[in-house]
Design a protein around this nucleic acid. Structure first.
Lengths: 271, 271
DNA sequence: CTTGACTCTCCCCCAACCGGAGACTGCATC
DNA sequence: GATGCAGTCTCCGGTTGGGGGAGAGTCAAG
């Protein structure tokens, strides 16, 4: 039963590098069956090859070593969870990747000059709205918006209040990958004299002058619109005053992403 | 035109971290429009946000910074190439990932015990074969085998030589992700008295005793079979003698991967 | 003028190893 | 039994793309 092999042979048979095996030994992830006291030579048993194989496979899928350890020494449930989680992560990345590629290509090829943002000022009248507030981060913003629109739509139709304009969202804080922010999903209504559910606010947004542009294309690619707006505001020597507003001019579920129109308004202080 | 913002504001508007911006400055990838001589403060122009945006997007797709630089400063052609290459890389990884997941699950859940490899010795008679040799690495082994089988099949049918057994492959060297090795693709023929094209060898493999097992399932998961075989050989106190042989007992194109049968033989020295 | 927020540089740290230096070991051969 | 050489050891440093934090300097508002 002394089927012991030195590290080089073991490395060859498992297709791991000698360096990697030593690393796994240091981490306690794959400990040689025997370590010669005097020489320090590592000797592995052939039966350890399966564990090594599992490590190699998981690593080839970019599973971090700490997760590898958890999978190898954890219970079934943990294994399934980790693998499922990892799978969905990779699938999401691929999807995101595909969405982004066209964007990147246009960005770098300077094609955004073909779609220069035309920026105007707009005078928004005071507007009664029904709205709900939500906190979310970038990852869940889509779901949250969908849910909020649902809630809002339900509340106003239940109360027989007509919707008198395109819905929009106020972004009270910057929403980032891992920083939550507050958004306020709004629909215009005729007058602020209705009572809706607790979750739904009714108030009147004050009149404002805004800098406005319209972004055509997938929502993921909206950043340049904001940059253009802020640059313009700066150039004009004016100041942003309040939360930017995005108005969805058409229904994203009915169109290809290339045709989506998003109007962005940034309120300004008086000139 | 002095739309200069300090690093923190620029970071917020581009959703990059201050650390990352400083890093990109160090690398020359995104140099601030103005650096105050005395204080060292970095000031960015709002117009630089688009470049920053492009960097952030590419990085979110795991494009290395060197490639990012090439994309941003390279020509159209280079951009397209890089992006296409990157896309195919990610797509490949996802495909590989999906193939591997089930394997990993079985490996770690110990289910390989449900499929213990039954190992026997086999006495192979001397066998005339027609064969072609190819060098390849792991990445291209599938294509290479397909091509080799095609060549071989064409040669023997042209020469009206019957194929009298299942085709097999001798693995003369270990094939790894980046180390090429020689494989010899063989079909059994009745007698070594035929002349085929230059590319095709005809000879007689000597009789041999082998350790044999059969692997059922996707070819990607064959490693444990080898480990089991080598462990068995070791246990029996015998020695491998020559290139392992894989025989494909059924046609992979006609079956689901779960039903594929691969017979593995390792030649042994005389007992 | 003070205070607090911002920014600077510098240094160390992370994963998951790879490469190489210099020393030692194991095994085969002469 | 000496020699050669391939294999192995430890240790150090580097990689990529930053993050964390120290300690010092700077900016702008009240």
């Amino acid at each position: 039963m002394d089927d012991l092999v030195p590290i080089g042979r073991f490395a060859a048979s498992t297709r791991l590098s000698v360096k990697a095996l030593r690393h796994y030994h240091d981490l306690g992830l794959l400990v040689p069956a025997v370590v010669d006291e005097s020489s320090g030579y590592r000797y592995y048993r052939l039966g350890q090859a399966n564990r090594a194989e599992a490590i190699r496979t998981l690593r080839s899928l970019d599973v971090p070593l700490t997760d590898v350890a958890a999978v190898l020494d954890g219970d079934e449930q943990q294994v399934t969870d980790l693998l499922r989680h990892h799978q969905s992560r990779l699938a999401n990345e691929l999807a995101r990747h595909e969405r982004m590629l066209g964007y990147v290509r246009r960005l770098v090829s300077g094609e955004e000059h073909l779609m220069p943002y035309t920026i105007d000022t707009a005078a928004l009248p005071a507007q009664p709205v029904a709205s709900v507030r939500r906190r979310t981060d970038l990852e869940h913003v889509g779901e949250v918006i969908a849910e909020a629109f649902g809630t809002l739509h339900g509340a106003v139709t239940t109360a027989s209040v007509p919707i008198v304009g395109a819905p929009f969202i106020l972004y009270h804080e910057l929403i980032d990958a891992d920083t939550e922010g507050t958004i306020q999903v709004c629909v215009p209504i005729p007058a602020p004299d209705v009572d809706l559910s607790d979750d739904v606010e009714v108030d009147t947004l004050p009149a404002a002058t805004t800098a406005r542009t319209i972004h055509r294309g997938p929502y993921d690619e909206i950043s340049p619109a904001y940059h253009a707006l802020y640059a313009w505001v700066q150039e004009q020597g004016r100041q942003p005053a309040g939360a930017p507003r995005e108005t969805y001019l058409n229904d994203p579920t009915e169109l290809t992403v290339d045709e989506q129109l998003t109007q962005v308004d940034i309120p300004l202080t008086a000139a």
